[in-house]
Amino acid sequence: MTVNLQKGQKISLSKEGGGALTRVTMGLGWDAIKTKGFLGFGAKTESVDLDASVVMFDESNRPVDTVWFRQLKSKDGSIVHTGDNRTGAGDGDDEQINVDLSSVPPNVKSLVFTVNSFTGQNFSQVQNAYCRLLDASGNKEVARYDLSVQGAHTAQVMAKLYRHNGEWKMHAIGENASGRTFDDLMPAITPHL
Rank of each mutant, 00 (worst) to 15 (best):
103 S>M: 15
171 H>P: 02
59 E>I: 08
97 I>L: 08
174 G>V: 09
173 I>M: 01
85 N>P: 00
60 S>Y: 10
182 F>Q: 04
109 K>R: 13
113 F>I: 09
53 S>N: 02
13 L>Q: 07
155 A>K: 03
65 D>Q: 07
166 G>K: 09
85 N>D: 05
93 D>V: 00
20 A>P: 02
50 L>T: 01
169 K>D: 03
141 E>K: 09
69 F>D: 04
110 S>Q: 11
95 E>G: 01
94 D>H: 00
96 Q>F: 06
99 V>Y: 02
164 H>C: 09
68 W>N: 01
171 H>K: 10
103 S>F: 11
85 N>E: 03
9 Q>N: 06
105 P>L: 05
12 S>I: 05
105 P>F: 02
33 I>A: 07
136 A>R: 01
7 K>Y: 04
24 V>E: 00
148 S>A: 15
33 I>L: 09
164 H>Y: 12
177 A>M: 09
126 V>T: 09
123 F>P: 00
126 V>I: 15
16 E>V: 03
160 K>D: 06
28 L>K: 00
184 D>N: 15
57 F>I: 08
28 L>Y: 00
62 R>M: 12
167 E>N: 07
55 V>Y: 02
97 I>E: 01
144 R>C: 12
130 Y>S: 05
65 D>I: 04
35 T>E: 08
169 K>R: 11
24 V>P: 00
98 N>R: 06
24 V>D: 00
26 M>N: 06
74 S>N: 13
22 T>W: 01
44 K>V: 03
152 A>T: 07
47 S>Y: 14
6 Q>L: 14
184 D>Y: 11
28 L>P: 03
3 V>L: 14
174 G>Y: 03
193 L>S: 09
84 D>Q: 05
171 H>D: 11
59 E>Y: 11
179 G>R: 10
95 E>C: 06
50 L>W: 00
178 S>Y: 14
3 V>I: 15
14 S>D: 12
30 W>Y: 07
73 K>N: 14
132 R>V: 02
125 Q>M: 08
190 T>F: 12
126 V>N: 03
10 K>L: 12
133 L>V: 15
136 A>I: 02
127 Q>M: 05
173 I>Q: 01
189 I>R: 02
24 V>K: 00
148 S>C: 11
33 I>S: 05
109 K>L: 12
139 N>H: 11
12 S>P: 06
84 D>I: 01
104 V>M: 04
86 R>H: 10
